[in-house]
Nucleic acid binder design. Structure first.
Lengths: 115, 115
DNA sequence: TGCATATATAAGTATATGCTTATATTATGA
DNA sequence: TCATAATATAAGCATATACTTATATATGCA
């Protein structure tokens, strides 16, 4: 009668990664569509190495997948991760980050990498 | 048409606190009923100061409420916290911690403070 | 009043975290 | 094949975190 639960230790590990404004925003962005590193840099206004390091943590934990497309590397949410149900629920409770990308585009600010 | 969302910064702050095995277990315990410090010590098998310090973080952030009852101080979930929706969702995804308390009792292991 | 119990706080310490700057890697295109 | 763009990695550093041990505070009871 119980739905499947996420192991508490794994849950804590994932929540620790979600417990950072930068990473939470990144996940909010890839919730909708895959993004390349330069987009995160642009939206979050942070240095490229800093973004890369956050992405590495998320990837090492398996929360996001990466896929190279030529010059760019695109990140997307790994929906088959054990703790995905938690991530999904959390992301539903925070404001949609898609707006941030849209706002950028509408302001005519070109995203560094030409997509 | 949007449900109320939790501010991303506040969400991250709460998730950081949830991102620790000890604190996540504590919240899982107080989800059902209020608990006193000695119960956490017993269930988690950690030192009393360590537990107290975790509880202080949770209380400072407003995630739990404390209520003194004579010699004991009982902690309970603060269901009116801004980020409560997140906590609630997360706790639904992890195994019920109530079992741990039950197991203790059934094993005949007395909880330190007499309730 | 004085001792025991429950809890909090303080100080110290080892490790983790998140940035920075500098440099390496990989792919594109002239 | 060389320059440039996109990204990753490394090293260094300041700050945060989660314990430990020692001590303080508050309540209950003889």
């Amino acid at each position: 009668m119980e739905e499947t639960k996420v192991d508490l230790e794994k849950a804590a590990q994932t929540l620790k990664l979600l417990g950072d404004k930068t990473r939470l925003t990144i996940l909010g962005l890839v919730k909708n569509h895959e993004c390349c590193v330069c987009e995160f840099v642009e939206v979050l206004q942070m240095s490229q190495p800093s973004i890369s390091q956050h992405l590495r943590k998320l990837r090492d934990a398996g929360l996001v997948k990466e896929q190279r497309k030529g010059q760019w590397i695109f990140y997307s949410l790994n929906t088959s991760h054990d703790t995905y149900p938690i991530i999904q629920q959390v992301l539903e409770q925070i404001p949609n980050q898609k707006e941030k990308l849209k706002a950028l585009e509408e302001a005519g600010l070109r995203i560094q990498c030409d997509r």
